[in-house]
Simulated assay, not measured.
Amino acid sequence: MSIEAKLADLGVTLPDAPAPAANYVPYVQSGELLFVSGQISNDENGLITGKLGHDMEIEAGAKAARRCAINLLAQVKAACAGDIDRLVQVVKLTGFVNSTAEFTDQPKVINGASDFLVEALGDAGRHSRSAVSAASLPLGVAVEIEGIFRIR
């Protein structure tokens, strides 16, 4: 089953890849590796903002992380000239969680992205990962995730 078909089964349509918000490129390819710049939590309704441990619960943060993963796949599709089936493996994610100093469940938040990628891609979605706290994130978003992917 193609990646697009699996995403459709999950009710997910990839958005157009977001344009960079500053002086950087959305992705860089080096050999088979594709480095995708951080994707912030947003959906069709706009930015998903909040601070975990203050005004946002883990479940809402995990949903925000899932949206970051969808945006990462949109960038992979753009980098592959529209053929997301060129994606071979999610190699690594680095997740940043807008959270209070006392909040310690960053991994549970980033699980929203990890769980989605495994559900959508199977073993190709299994990856190494870091999940860290940030005192703040751009535009007040709840989550930002960057990724490394192997493509053919």
Score class of each variant (00 low, 15 high):
residue 84 I to R: 06
residue 75 Q to R: 11
residue 22 A to H: 04
residue 85 D to I: 07
residue 98 N to Q: 02
residue 29 Q to F: 00
residue 84 I to S: 01
residue 54 H to G: 01
residue 6 K to R: 15
residue 93 L to W: 01
residue 77 K to C: 00
residue 47 L to Q: 06
residue 46 G to N: 00
residue 77 K to A: 02
residue 108 K to V: 00
residue 121 L to K: 09
residue 10 L to V: 11
residue 140 G to K: 02
residue 117 L to A: 06
residue 79 A to S: 13
residue 143 V to H: 10
residue 21 A to E: 15
residue 35 F to E: 01
residue 93 L to Y: 07
residue 59 E to K: 14
residue 4 E to S: 14
residue 131 A to V: 09
residue 107 P to T: 04
residue 104 T to S: 13
residue 105 D to T: 07
residue 152 R to K: 15
residue 98 N to H: 15
residue 30 S to I: 03
residue 127 H to K: 11
residue 150 R to L: 13
residue 122 G to K: 12
residue 137 L to I: 05
residue 98 N to K: 03
residue 119 E to D: 15
residue 49 T to E: 10
residue 104 T to E: 14
residue 9 D to F: 08
residue 48 I to P: 06
residue 110 I to Q: 01
residue 79 A to Y: 06
residue 147 G to T: 03
residue 12 V to I: 15
residue 99 S to D: 03
residue 140 G to D: 05
residue 132 V to C: 11
residue 110 I to A: 02
residue 38 G to N: 09
residue 14 L to E: 12
residue 136 S to T: 14
residue 30 S to D: 12
residue 141 V to A: 06
residue 152 R to G: 14
residue 75 Q to W: 00
residue 71 N to M: 09
residue 108 K to E: 10
residue 136 S to F: 13
residue 148 I to N: 04
residue 75 Q to L: 10
residue 61 G to V: 07
residue 59 E to H: 09
residue 58 I to S: 03
residue 8 A to G: 06
residue 71 N to K: 09
residue 143 V to E: 09
residue 50 G to Q: 12
residue 123 D to E: 14
residue 23 N to K: 11
residue 23 N to E: 12
residue 51 K to N: 04
residue 120 A to Q: 04
residue 80 C to P: 07
residue 111 N to P: 01
residue 34 L to T: 01
residue 20 P to F: 09
residue 135 A to V: 09
residue 127 H to E: 09
residue 89 Q to K: 15
